[in-house]
Computed example of a mutant assay.
Amino acid sequence: MSLFEGMLLVFAGAFAGFVNSIAGGGSLLIMPLLIFMGLPSAEANGTNRVAIFIQNIFSVAGYRSKGVYVFPFAIYVAIPAIIGAIIGSNIAVDIGDKVFNRILAVVMLVVMAISIFRPSINIDPSEIINKKKTWMSVIVFFFLGIYGGFIQAGIGFLIIATLTSIHGLNMAKTNSIKVFVILCYTVAAVIVFYLEDKIRWEYGLTLAAGNSVGAWIGSRWSVGKSDKLIRLILLVMVIALSIKLWFF
Rank of each mutant, 00 (worst) to 15 (best):
I123Y: 09
V138F: 15
A153D: 10
L158E: 13
G6D: 01
K198H: 10
G26N: 04
S165A: 09
K244Y: 12
H167V: 01
K244L: 09
I87L: 13
L229P: 04
V190I: 11
S41G: 04
I139C: 12
I87Q: 00
S21L: 07
N56D: 13
P40W: 11
V138R: 01
G25D: 06
A215Q: 06
E196M: 06
G24I: 01
L8I: 10
S137Y: 08
Y194Q: 14
A215L: 11
M1E: 03
G17D: 00
A81C: 00
I75A: 12
L158S: 04
L104T: 00
P72N: 10
S115A: 14
G218V: 03
L109C: 13
S219W: 03
I160M: 09
G168L: 02
P80E: 00
D197L: 07
I22P: 02
I146P: 00
V19Q: 04
F141A: 08
A78H: 00
S21E: 07
S65T: 08
F36I: 07
G25N: 02
L8S: 15
S21V: 15
G148A: 09
V223I: 15
P72E: 04
A12Q: 02
L234P: 05
I182A: 08
G46N: 15
F15S: 14
A16S: 13
V107W: 00
N48C: 11
F143E: 03
Y203P: 01
T164V: 12
E43F: 11
L245W: 09
G214I: 04
R220P: 03
P32K: 02
L8R: 01
F142D: 05
L33M: 15
G25Q: 03
I91F: 15
G148K: 01
I114N: 09
I123T: 14
G210K: 05
